[in-house]
């Protein structure tokens, strides 16, 4: 009885598959970095920039594919350059969003062209799917060192700029008056953001890297009001969602229509969305109860 329940939850082979273990560890690394960087992206109003970086990386990756290079370099190179450009284009959030939006369509167009060439000239029909939607199960093991290395770099950078970043996220004028080099901090944060997003794009796919960046962070800051704690909670939510997603995707090999398994990214994004909705509902109820107590008191 218990055994069959166990097997419904964890399809046979889940714990013995090396692909599963690799997926679990890589997605955890990505979730931690995305959660930590994501808190700042949300607080600074740079969620859209974070999303755009994923898309820019796509174009880079498909270009690299076309040139026969490793997709990692395409993701990272274009991500870092695009981050720097976005940062210099607009000083105010609104200005920046408009500039990003305009450039984004052009870059996406070029990306579509590259992907088309990828499939026609290089005969890699899977390339667009992998680059856009990723698959934690199919990640090339040789990429693991790269992913971990750049994730580590992003976290290190974030730790170094932590206080001035928090300060200038609160108010730029105030931070500058206190001697914070706000331009430099902004560029360094963009680099950390680019590294985090591109790593996650390699693992969960460019289109859904945003989900891991923004979702857990947005949920975390609804429940915590300390910066460090918010980063920790966001990482935990990210790990939980991606592990649940991996489990469901593994189980889905036995689901219709064919025994091929549903895409992991679908599950991860759905779980994050579900948690986000739940966090809103809970807070609503919380405040209503709070008001009632006030009225009665």
């Amino acid at each position: 009885m218990l055994n069959s329940l166990w097997h419904t939850l964890f399809a046979p082979g889940f714990f013995s598959s090396s692909a599963v273990w690799r997926a679990l560890s890589m997605s955890a690394a990505v979730a931690v970095v995305s959660g930590m960087v994501g808190v700042f992206a949300v607080v600074r109003g740079q969620s859209f920039a974070g999303h755009a970086l994923g898309d820019f990386g796509t174009t880079g990756a498909s270009g690299a594919f076309l040139a026969g290079l490793n997709a990692v370099w395409g993701f990272l190179g274009v991500g870092l350059i695009a981050g720097a450009i976005m940062d210099t284009l607009g000083k105010r959030a609104k200005e920046r969003d408009i500039a990003t939006g305009v450039v984004l369509s052009l870059i996406l167009g070029i990306g579509a062209l590259f992907l088309y060439f990828d499939t026609t000239y290089r005969n890699t029909t899977g390339a667009p799917m992998t680059i856009l939607f990723g698959s934690v199960f199919l990640v090339d093991p040789s990429l693991l060192p790269f992913v971990l290395c750049f994730d580590g770099l992003a976290v290190l950078l974030l730790f170094i700029i932590y206080r001035p970043l928090l300060f200038s996220s609160l108010n730029v004028d105030l931070a500058r008056a206190k001697g914070v080099p706000a331009r430099l901090i902004s560029i360094l944060f963009m680099s950390a953001l680019a590294m985090a997003v591109e790593q996650s794009a390699i693992v969960v796919g460019a289109l859904l890297s945003t989900a891991l960046l923004i979702g857990p962070a947005a949920i975390a800051i609804r429940f915590t009001h300390r910066p460090g704690k918010a980063m920790l909670v966001a990482s935990m939510i990210g790990i939980f969602s991606s592990w649940m997603g991996i489990l469901l995707a593994y189980d889905s090999y036995n689901w219709p229509p064919v025994n091929r398994g549903w895409p992991v990214s679908f599950f991860i994004a759905s779980i994050i969305l579900l948690l986000y909705i739940l966090s809103h509902l809970r807070l609503r109820m919380g405040t209503r109860r709070g008001k009632k107590v006030l009225q009665e008191g």
């Binding site: 730790f159 932590y162 206080r163 001035p164 928090l166 300060f167 206190k178 001697g179 914070v180």
Partner: peptide, 8 residues
Amino acid sequence: DGHRWGIP
């Protein structure tokens, strides 16, 4: 110490 590098 908001202008200092690193975490507090």
